[in-house]
Write a protein that binds this DNA or RNA. Structure first.
Lengths: 247, 247
DNA sequence: AACTGTTCTTTGACAAATACAATTAAAGAA
DNA sequence: TTCTTTAATTGTATTTGTCAAAGAACAGTT
């Protein structure tokens, strides 16, 4: 789209043939992925509660630097590779994931963030429905645990920023549904909202605001020990996906 | 903050001393600035209208590639330079601006965007009050004109994304006020909103929603040919700046 | 001095969205 | 049957948003 098929004058052709890339300061770029999902935790066996919690995928580094520490899955951007290609490659190799929703978060470029050399990280947020994934090589960690861990590089800070972004976008986009299973109850959905926003919501208000995005499946939960709930699925808005989501 | 003062084991020290940065794929990074402001256009001398319009700063390239084309002010990130440092340097040299509000927009990394080599652009949006600037080396262009121009590289696309971001953030942040003079009328402010959103707003509704962000100066306009308007200034919210604005 | 055109500013009526308390519904468990 | 738990609804008050219409102040014109 950008520089292909444009008119190049002879002077520019001359210039380009003389251009020596190696003479210029060069910086390596990595793509790091913050893969976020929700999963049920069996926190209390006596009362058979299955509260959900927000989870992020981390990998254990088996090379220097930060050998043995956990870090976000990531890898170097090849010279002929777009960020999205790097992201796909990295996700596939380090987590086994493919075809998941991702968007660019922020580019972290402080000079000392990597002890090896100047390495800039272009971070992507990916949202997945954990129940449909099969992870290999990485582990899920609850977001509450992560501030207590000492992640490699500036990855603690990157995770922080990712959660801020999620909080900021949850209200005016439909991104949450990338983390939901195909079918879910309104209470389950509300719990995910509460996890991301970090506060309780009123059931009646939540139900009212969210219900035009939902479609009744006709099914109900059962064996829950209380009144069954209606099961819904996400109803794609008529005008296609939200403008804020495409990028 | 990130990798300073951390415990480095002897194995890591050994590893780092052997590390050869030149062996890795390297990519150059530029920072490009989308400097946005509003200014009055004398569009119609007969009726003495002074409508405002959204403006962006562009510079004429006097080097290959795209010699003679207009582009966003930008420059290469030095090996020991943060993006913010590069941005400051570039803004100062190419536009004469200093100390203006800026935030990272997006990082553009398609492989063919620069004919010289692989160059990634980390784009920043900067918002200024044009009335308080003194530009040297760059020119203001109305945003309506820019799609008709053929900017260097993928800068047309970058400008598009910047405007999208502005539209998305204007409603839930106070960033517009970075583009406003210290004192202004509600109609002037509304016009800026309308320029960014690309649609008309209802004066009564706008007035009601915006007025808790404003503080009356007690002054009034005069000689306007119609009822004078009250002059306001921005009232900083009690809790400091909005969370979305930081960094 | 009165009239006119302009647009800033305010009002009030109405609709829609939201907040919150209180109630009803439907299970399983004791 | 009764109790417990969570689902779902209802109703009311409050806030917020939409919209039309009227009033206010000034410059220019008659």
């Amino acid at each position: 789209m950008s520089s292909k098929n444009r008119a190049v004058d002879p002077g520019e052709e001359e210039f380009l043939s003389q251009y020596r890339p190696e003479e210029y300061a060069s910086i390596s770029i990595t793509v790091d992925a913050i893969v976020v999902g929700v999963a049920k935790d069996i926190t209390d066996n006596y009362r058979k509660l299955d509260r959900q919690s927000l989870k992020i995928l981390l990998v254990k580094r088996d090379n220097y630097p930060y050998k043995g520490s956990y870090s976000l899955p990531g890898g170097f951007v090849g010279e002929k590779e777009t960020f999205e290609d790097t992201l796909k490659r990295v996700l596939s190799i380090k987590t086994g994931l493919s075809d998941i929703y991702s968007e660019q978060l922020y580019t972290f470029g402080s000079v000392e963030r990597d002890p090896r050399m100047r390495i800039v990280s272009c971070a992507y947020i990916s949202l997945v429905d954990i129940s449909r994934t099969n992870i290999t090589g990485a582990e899920w960690f609850a977001v509450e645990e992560i501030p207590k861990m000492d992640l490699a590089f500036d990855h603690n800070q990157i995770v922080e920023e990712a959660l801020k972004r999620l909080r900021g976008k949850i209200d005016y986009t439909d991104i949450v549904f990338h983390m939901m299973p195909v079918e879910f109850t309104i209470s389950e959905l509300q719990e995910v909202y509460e996890l991301i926003l970090g506060k309780k919501l009123l059931p009646a208000a939540f139900r009212r605001t969210i219900s035009d995005k939902l479609e009744d499946t006709g099914k109900m939960t059962s064996n829950a020990g209380h009144r069954p709930s209606r099961i819904f699925r996400y109803k794609m808005p008529s005008g296609g996906l939200d403008d804020y989501e495409s990028q």
